[in-house]
Amino acid sequence: MLMDGKVVLVTGASRGIGASIARAFAKEGALVIINYLQNREAAERVAKECSDLGGEGWPIQGDVTNELAVQEMIEEAMEAGSIDVLVNNAFKSYIFDAENRKPAGELSWPEYQEQIDGSLQSAYNMCQAVIPIMKTQSKGSIINITTNLIERPVVPYHDYNTGKSALAGYSKNLAADLGRFGIRVNCVAPGLVYPTDATKHTKQDLKDSIISQTPLRRLAKPEDIAGPVLFLASDMSSFITGQTLMVDGGLVMK
């Protein structure tokens, strides 16, 4: 199998896209560390599903925005012996309300800061803890989940999109410096994924409008994101780094 014997850490993996990614790795034989913040029950459910799929699931609680908590989590995770893949999927909860979003000029700096911290700082904390481990292995793959909105702000969620843009820039710079250690850093940028907790209330109008401009004529499902993540994690993409894969049915073409 593609990920036999590999240890994969997915942040925010108790639900939605994260859970779907965890399951996909387990199906390919990986030991998946399922990081969650609050919902222990959901994380354990995902872990069980992972085992049923032929891999292994191991839920570990940890607040990724907290440096100390991250360090403790990685220490615990290292009981697995290594961390081959890190997927930074967790993000600060955000209400995607296209109708009631704040227009340009009306957001306070703390609002921006909150999203930058939620998106970038959490990935930073994780990378800081995991990179030294990957260096010793002389190999590793880091995948950061961003959004296609950073390329084409169909809905300009200023704070959220700016936070994710920062993460995309951070990723490229890591890629440039970590290639020499055999560590690859890439991003997966989904379009609107439905259904997830964050999008279950998205209005039909917006969904229709996006679908009408999407060559593949539908919205992304959580499982659609897992494939490209798996690809970037595996040796199938061993010569790809610093890239962003848009997973939005062709809405954004670069």
Binding site: T136, S138, G179, F181, G182
Partner: peptide, 13 residues
């Protein structure tokens, strides 16, 4: 120690 890691990756490449 860091140089050893650089070297390792060069060898793998």
């Amino acid at each position: 120690g860091e140089f050893a890691k650089y070297l390792a990756h060069e060898l793998s490449a």
